[in-house]
Nucleic acid binder design. Structure first.
Lengths: 358, 358
DNA sequence: TTGTAAGCGTTATCAA
DNA sequence: TTGATAACGCTTACAA
């Protein structure tokens, strides 16, 4: 008797409910335990005869175990929680992509929670994902969660932070080497002859990567280079809200300060870069000739804006892959103090940082 | 006695395992069944006194039910499976974002599976997600899955297709009104004076949206407009592989054909648009003046490439939201024949389709 | 080497 | 109105 399951076979298509381990056991004429053993401890403890009977039955019923039931029993779900501050951010997407690939290869599935830039929902995200028994977290968030992430870590769930540190937490951290990348970009502007520099970023608030970049910029311009005496730098935080008037203002005063020297801008991510480009367009200044521009994040459109935008490319795919990799290592039992993994950026010089037409 | 759970309280932090319904029952001095009732059938059947005791206990233990256990018991998981052909595609991301928001609001969580453009993994994706008891699917894929999606549907799991139809399947379908959007763009080029038109897309293969756009373009140029007699159109499929030589070739012959008339290009998505822009740059033709360009998909960088790219914007957020909405309606029991929901595109004219400087 | 049975955290059925 | 109790599909002592 196939019992209950088949009772509701009414007129319409008979959905042939998924086979369970009990079905397989019955089909093979063995106990559920045996089937389970076949699945989990294949090699040890199994008569050839029985093993093959089980194998056949599994095949015949197209059986695959229910991860839900396994999770309930084992406490492990083969699920990884990914929380991003904003899926719209191309950087987050790239990381997502890298991480997703690595997870899949290791047999994990990603549960995605997007904060939509509302950092208050971070702890909700972590709670929800925890309820689903995710085994670990990859977090690309601000950490304004009142320690929800730290809680998770305390409950023994490994956590990997990507791009943004949480001040209150010790965890693996994977990120661009921000200081190095800033030096790369600033150095480049200096070499190309730009002397009055402006670092434009989104509001720094508590976003660690922004803080690091800003600090590195300051450090660079304050420590005079060998042979470079007329270098000066300042910073500006641009928001989407206060229109672009403020940004234009900042650019105007940059040029005023520059005097005969060339002004240059280092922008801290792709969104800001676009704002700068727009403002420069409105001011009628030519990229490269009138003002140098180097921006963080290389995008597919970078080569085609104006004379081509000079950018600092982040190894985004790698970041995602490595983040997932760290997590999976921990899940497999690696015990190690928290690691920091910093990857180098790569400078892609283009027209926006060429002051003299070639 | 709190029993087992606390046994392992060794030196390190005591992970204070999640409270279960049994803990709550004990704390409140009632049975598990009562707690369950409180949670699921709050209003009916419950003494005020008992109800408040349960409430207090839940509060005290910070209890929340395990979705895993619920899923096992109920067969419903509050999970929705999202399969995308390629997360890198900005369109997919936008849809993802819209869908994620709608799902969250309805109390569902998204399980993400990215195919990384390997359509053979589609049925693996669907199988995996099915195993996790997702209640339904949002699919932005090719449908080369040998009916795995159709299987899902047959097993009673609602499916919503976004942007790409699966030929073998009847399911809700949410998409841009491709034909209308193509008319919008082509009409615009004609009005702006471009007469020898080229439609550039990625290989059409079996991607329904590409087919529809190509067909609509053909139809448009073959049905002469009132008063427009010298219109001619052709199509070209551009791949990333065969270098861009082929594309340049196509553009050259476009111009040859145009003779004294103005050549114009309609490109079928953002990636292709960039390829076209790059090719035109190499050829040294000016956007707008030498050749008109209108591209599908408005992006944040569209205004800043060359003189600004004229684009046809898709209501991506809406598409995602509506797709999720359809699915959730079905999950709540809506019985209806498969729907097709087509949203209109919006034309954003910019410099790339202005033939005479103003 | 295999089977029996208990239990993971819920909900649903039945009595009480 | 509430409480035992049996499932849901799986794993794992323990017994055989």
């Amino acid at each position: 008797m196939r019992a209950k399951k088949q009772v509701h076979n009414s007129a319409a298509a008979a959905p042939a409910a998924r086979a369970t381990i009990a079905d397989v056991a019955r089909e093979a004429g063995v106990s559920k335990a045996t089937v389970s053993r076949f699945l989990n401890h294949r090699e040890r403890l199994l008569t050839k005869d029985i093993a093959s009977r089980v194998e056949v039955a599994i095949e015949a019923l197209a059986y695959s175990p229910s991860p839900m039931a396994q999770a309930l029993k084992r406490g492990r779900s083969r699920l990884i929680g990914l929380v991003v501050a904003d899926v719209t951010n191309p950087f987050s997407v790239a990381v997502l992509r890298g991480a997703e690939k690595a997870c899949q290869q290791a047999g994990y599935l990603l549960m995605l929670f997007n904060l939509g830039n509302d950092s208050r929902r971070e702890s909700e995200a972590i709670k929800t994902l925890t309820a689903y028994q995710v085994e670990g977290f990859i977090l690309n968030t601000l950490g304004r969660d009142n320690g929800a992430a730290a809680d998770a870590a305390r409950h023994g769930k490994p956590v990997v932070l990507v791009d943004r540190r949480h001040h209150d937490m010790q965890a693996d951290f994977v990120s661009l080497d921000n200081a190095g990348a800033v030096r790369l970009g600033t150095q480049h502007l200096v070499e190309r002859g730009y002397r009055e520099l402006l670092f434009v970023s989104e509001p720094v608030k508590d976003v660690s990567s922004r803080e690091e970049r800003k600090a590195a910029f300051r450090a660079f311009v304050e420590a005079p280079q060998a042979g470079v005496t007329d270098l000066h730098g300042s910073t500006f935080e641009s928001t989407a809200e206060d229109g672009d008037a403020a940004l234009e203002q900042a650019l105007r005063s940059l040029r005023r300060r520059a005097g005969k020297r060339l002004p240059g801008v280092l922008s801290s991510n792709a969104v800001v870069t676009l704002r700068v480009v727009a403002a420069l367009a409105r001011l009628g200044w030519r990229l490269g000739a009138d003002v140098g521009l180097v921006g963080f994040d290389d995008t597919e459109w970078s080569p085609y804006v104006g004379p081509g935008l000079s950018t600092i490319a982040q190894p985004t795919d790698e970041l995602g892959r490595i983040a997932a990799g760290c997590l999976i290592e921990r899940l497999q039992g690696l015990e190690l103090p928290p690691r920091q993994i910093l990857l180098s950026g790569r400078l892609l010089p283009r027209g926006s940082s060429v002051s003299t037409p070639t």
